[in-house]
Design a protein around this nucleic acid. Structure first.
Length: 477
RNA sequence: GGGGUUGUAAGAUAACUUGGUUAUUCUACCACGUUCGGGACGUGGCAAUCCCAGUUCAAAUCUGGGCAACCCCA
């Protein structure tokens, strides 16, 4: 950061990391703290999260998921019960070992995820086929002591998320539900964040520790790095066997339950910021914008009273939106324009003395910066349409970028080039671990996920054996 | 996991090589006045050497450690 101006000094396509860091700080979304990987979520960012919560809670309700809360601290013995899961998380688990000066008898893990502590209770609640399905979600914070350097929102040690944990009486039900959850996630990303994503299944190497398989949504940022948006895991009976969660079915036969778990975190806020924002600052899709419209009156001494009066009328006229009347007199109009662009407010309405006579305003949208003169009698309709247009435009732009970035590759050389250009390689793959290792080493990319819809034809281009899936590979966060 | 760069006020910076009085400048912030259709101006004011140790008569400056941010490679 070399200059002292108020706006951004780094360019998105030149210095992505510095640019991103400036956007989140200058738009007052997040602040670094003294602990690496732990950030402050400032009100403008937390508003986004609250919107996601209320939207998702509504979606969850539709499919019978209820909210609950489980403890932050998990006894070591419990965390170790499902071995594969424990091994996967062990390096990143932080432990509470002392209270004051005295050692605890058993150390307590700060949850890296809550399967273990939740399922210890599920086994007490599930005895009969009538107790199923059990569908519970919780909104909470998670701690994973990552060693890679952290990026606000995108990779933090502490983050906020929802984790859902469903239990069913059959394998078919859990399979269907795991997919259904992914649809809810896809819809949330699209409707709130205007984020497009690739739907698929994780490779064996990349799946959740302890899962039968993991489904995910993946997308691409303009710095050429792919990023996982969220995941939905089919746990099969791995945990129900470890935690002894069983029930008597209609035939009086003892069975273990079939489970899934699924999570969507504040990482998505970062994805949204990085995806839509530009060199002028933040761009926020209207659905999650704390302020959707800012009215800036243009004030001159002789007309100030009239203009302010009109601005107040507009403020009332637009009361169905989240609107802010910026009538501060110690800042010039131009200064305000820049500030509100930096903070990503979707629509700006200017009203000055010249507009008064003509019963009009100047309307400027943040995504395209296009100015338009609008008659006041048409304003409400125009605003509604523009907010929708902004959302659609952001989504379509991002969709096109993602689609254009996917390149079919037939050999490792092509793949290397594609990855080198910051794009996503789409390829036929046997799905074997060895080939993934080879591709990872030779192209510095990893598998994002494997298409759920496209059938593989022909051979795996790495080993020449039969291809078992069409996969996406890319550089990744 | 390996290598590198950096840390001075709310933000950005100067002084560091060659240790020395009251730590430079711009922005922000506060007060008053004049302004306002794309980051206005005047006057006055507030405000900092990341933390711990060492060397020294003397440390922002030199040495070691810690913490944090960023970059590159695996």
């Amino acid at each position: 950061m070399k200059e002292s101006k108020e706006g951004l000094t780094f360019k998105k396509d030149k210095d992505f990391s510095e640019w991103y860091s400036q956007v989140i700080q200058k738009a007052e979304l997040a602040e670094y703290t003294n602990v690496s990987g732990c950030i402050v979520f400032r009100p403008r960012a937390y508003y986004i999260w609250e919107t996601v919560q209320s939207y998702m809670n509504n979606e969850f309700k539709k499919i019978g998921v209820r909210n609950a809360y489980f403890p932050l601290l998990i006894p070591e013995s419990l965390l170790k019960k499902e071995k594969e899961n424990f091994q996967g998380f062990n390096p990143e688990v932080a432990w509470v070992t002392k209270t004051g000066d005295s050692e605890l008898n058993e150390r307590l893990a700060i949850r890296p995820t809550s399967e273990t502590i939740m399922y210890d209770h599920y086994k007490k609640w599930i005895h009969s086929w009538k107790d199923l399905p059990l569908k519970i979600n919780q909104w909470n914070n998670i701690l994973r002591w990552e060693f890679k350097h952290s990026v606000p929102f995108l990779r933090t040690r502490e983050f906020l998320w929802q984790e859902g944990h469903n239990a069913f009486s059959s394998e078919q039900e859990v399979q269907k539900d795991t997919l259904l959850i992914l649809d809810v996630y896809e819809k949330t990303l699209k409707e709130l964040y205007a984020i497009p994503a690739l739907k698929g299944r994780k490779s064996e190497k990349e799946k959740f520790a302890g899962a039968v398989y993991t489904l995910s949504l993946e997308t691409l940022l303009s710095n050429g790095k792919a990023i996982q948006c969220c995941t939905s895991h089919n746990l099969g009976q791995n945990f129900s066997r470890a935690f002894d969660i069983n029930f008597l079915d209609k035939n009086e036969k003892k069975q273990y339950v079939w489970q899934n778990s699924w999570g969507f975190s504040t990482r998505t806020i970062g994805i949204m910021i990085a995806m839509h924002s530009d060199d002028l600052g933040l761009v926020v899709p209207p659905m999650v914008a704390e302020t959707q419209i800012v009215i800036v009156p243009i004030l001159f001494d002789e007309s100030k009273g009239k203009v302010l009066k009109k601005a107040n009328e507009l403020f009332k006229l637009l009361k169905n939106y989240r609107v802010y009347l910026d009538s501060r007199e110690d800042y010039s109009a131009g200064w305000k324009f820049n500030e509100h662009e930096l903070k990503g407010i979707p629509i700006r309405i200017e009203i000055g003395p010249k507009d008064l006579a003509k019963n009009q305003v100047v309307l400027v949208r943040r995504d395209t910066l296009k100015k338009e003169i609008v008659k006041i009698k048409d304003l409400n309709k125009k605003v509604e349409k523009t907010l929708q247009d902004i959302h659609n435009n952001l989504y379509n732009k991002a969709r096109k970028f993602l689609d254009d970035s996917i390149v079919n590759v037939k050999n490792i050389n092509d793949m290397k080039k594609v990855i080198g250009k910051g794009k996503i390689a789409k390829l036929n793959w046997c799905l074997g671990n060895k080939c993934e290792d080879i591709l990872k080493e030779k192209t510095e990319s990893k598998s994002l996920n494997i298409s759920l819809t496209e059938k593989a034809k022909g051979k795996c281009f790495a080993c020449g054996n039969k291809a078992n899936g069409v996969a996406f590979f890319g550089k990744s966060y």
